[in-house]
Structure formats: C-alpha cells, structure tokens
Design a protein around this nucleic acid. Sequence first.
DNA 1: CAGCAGCTAGAACGATCACTCTAGCTCAAT
DNA 2: ATTGAGCTAGAGTGATCGTTCTAGCTGCTG
Lengths: 199, 199
Amino acid sequence: MVSDTRQRIVTATNELFRRHGYNGTSLNQVSKAAPATIGSIYHFFPGGKEALAVAVIESTGSVYRQLFELIVAEANDPASAFPHFFDQAGEVLVETDFIDPCPIGTIAREVASTSEPIRRAAEAAFDSWVEAATDFLVRSGVRQGDAHDLATLFVIMTEGAFVLCRTKRSIEPLHAVAGITTALISSALSAGSHAPSKA
Amino acid sequence: MVSDTRQRIVTATNELFRRHGYNGTSLNQVSKAAPATIGSIYHFFPGGKEALAVAVIESTGSVYRQLFELIVAEANDPASAFPHFFDQAGEVLVETDFIDPCPIGTIAREVASTSEPIRRAAEAAFDSWVEAATDFLVRSGVRQGDAHDLATLFVIMTEGAFVLCRTKRSIEPLHAVAGITTALISSALSAGSHAPSKA
DNA sequence: CAGCAGCTAGAACGATCACTCTAGCTCAAT
DNA sequence: ATTGAGCTAGAGTGATCGTTCTAGCTGCTG
C-alpha cells in the first residue's frame, strides 16, 4: 500500500496557500496541518517549498479542469454551462467563508517574477483550462477563433471574479459575470456556423 | 518644505509589492529601495507594514481611478474607451517586463483572510473603480443596471487579465479581453438608447 | 530471522523577519 | 543662540524562516 503522506502534504499546502498565499505559508504550518514532519516533506519534495508549490499547482490545475468538464457536461445547454460553473464557484466561496477557491492565481502573481518553475506550472494549468473551454465551445458550435478568445475570457473572468469576491466577501461579482456570460455565449452561438452538438 | 521621504517610501513599496507581493516584501528591502531608514518608515507609518500596505493601496487606487478617467476622456467613442484602457495597460506590461501593473489584487488575495484593514482598503479601491466606470457608462447611454454589471466586469477583466498576462508573460489575454469588450459595450449602448430588447 | 529500502523524527543552522529603542541630527521660529 | 519638533540613524529584540542532517523506525523481501 502506498503511503498517503504525500497526498496529505499536498492537500494541506493547497488549503494553506488558498488562505495565506505562497510567501505567507511556512513549511512549519504545512507540517502541522498535514500532519507530517519536516523530514517527510523534504523526502517527498527534495526541491523544497518551490517543488511543493509546483505539485500543488499541477494538482489543482488538473482537478479544476476535471471539475469544469463535469459541470459543463451536466449543463442543459451550452449558454448556461459557464453561468452554472460560476454559480457552483459561488457556493464554494460561501461554504468556505471566502477562502480563495484557487491557489494558482495568487501564487502566480506573487512569484511570477522570482520563480520560473512555479510560473511555468501556473501557465500550464491556465493553458489546460483554456483548452478545455475552447474544445467545449467548438463542440457547441462556436467558431474556432471566437472560441479561443471566449475561453481565455472565461479563465480571466474566473480569476478576476475570485479577486473581487474574496476582497468584498461577496459573491455579487460572480453574479455579474454569470449574467453577462450567458448573453455572450448565446451571441457567439448564433454567429457560429456549426450546429450545436450535445456534449 | 515638506519632506518627500514618505512619498519615496510609498513609491518604493508599491514597486516591491508589484514584484513580490506583500509577504514577499521585507521592510529591509523597502528601506534600501526608498531609500529611507527603518526608523523613518516607522515614523511615517507607526502601524508598521500593515499601515504601509494600506497607504500603498489607497494611493494606487486613486492613481488608477484618475488614469481611467483620463484614458476614457481621450477615447473617440464610448465603445473604444475600454479597449483603449486595456491597450495602454498592455504597453505598461511590456515596458516593465511584466511586473504586475497592480499591487492591489495580489495583496488582496494574499491577506484577505488575515488583515481586515488591508482587505477593506482594497475593497474601497475596487469600489471606486466600479463607480467611475459605471458613471462613464451611464453618461454614454447604458442603462443603470447594465452599467453597474458591466463596470464590475471591467474591473474583474482587468484584474483577471493581469493574472494571465503576468503568468504567461504575454499580452495576448489582454487583447482577447479588449476585442470582446468592444462588442459588449456596443451592444449595451444599442440596448440603452433604443427599446430595451434583451434575449 | 536478517537485511535494507522507504519513510519519519526532530534537533540544529545561519539568515532574516517585523518591530523597538535610544540617541542624535536638521532647521525654522524665537 | 537657543529651543524643540520633526525626522533620521542603526544596533538590538525574540521569533521564525527554509533547509540540512543524522538517527531510528517500519514493513516487505530473502
């Protein structure tokens, strides 16, 4: 049986990053929260804090991409898929008392100037989300060029809304985004030439 | 004659925050960059690092609001005002080698869970931007309700685009946002000046 | 049982953190 | 020339940082 210590470390670090960011989280805190000793942390992440952050970003990037696919698959029609995603994010925000839902954006802004490995991991995560959203939009009948811009906008809106929601301790910004997104997708769909296909 | 030491401290801290965030910036660094001694920093900001951050946020919030008004006033027509703003932001990004253009979003996400004074200062800055953008949209003929949502979206897009641009070291996300914004404002304008027809 | 990875334990390291404190400098008002 | 507020100077505080290190524990393999 594989030890679950590594996973406990990643999970604990993820939550601490979401509360306090990268520089605001110490390995001591991680050790207590996991729980795991400092030795264990360095056993699984010989690259130290930076390597741990990369692992957290990769893990979160992949989980969020799967979550997006899941939520989108449940949506009744393409135009409501994104608002559906934003609504779910809003619920998480309220349930967690406005802890940041996504550690990636915060970490990226903190250390993009100082850690290339972390910056690249964050870039890969964002790219994978844009790709997932683009695929979905194209499948739904949006033109390829429009789809990529809309998908980029979707990731931007998500990260931007998290900044405002967390700052205002309110999910109102998420609602503003959801409302406009519906109209945006509908209009892109009617401009598209393909027939929408069920996801 | 008023000493300019306080202003030097705020300016230096602003830039350091934009590079390394709140927790990634030490008062020692500020002291060297300003330049000013630790004693001077605590003389002007008896509340320490937290009070300094509040001052930086208030200063940046006000400067950005003025910059927005300025750029918008120069625009030929309402629909091009926001894209114009995004373009200018992109230029700054490139000129500064993708240092974060805005310290507020980063700091807010880092410490929203730990410092109420900082969180509130960031909230006030964002609110003032939403207000400025709402006023502009209403003046341009957008309906009040739509204007507030669009203005919120504008701030969200700005912060979200900064996250992606900084992470990808590219201004392409800003371009995606600019393109879509033009269509969005045009459509809101025609809905405002003509009969309220909405899908 | 013996042996040996894989993993845990936690003390110790130098560096640096935010912050405090006392002393002294500068310079306009008197 | 003297005062005194405003400001600067910088050493010193205890705490905590990321990281390293050695020793010992655990449980599979022979």
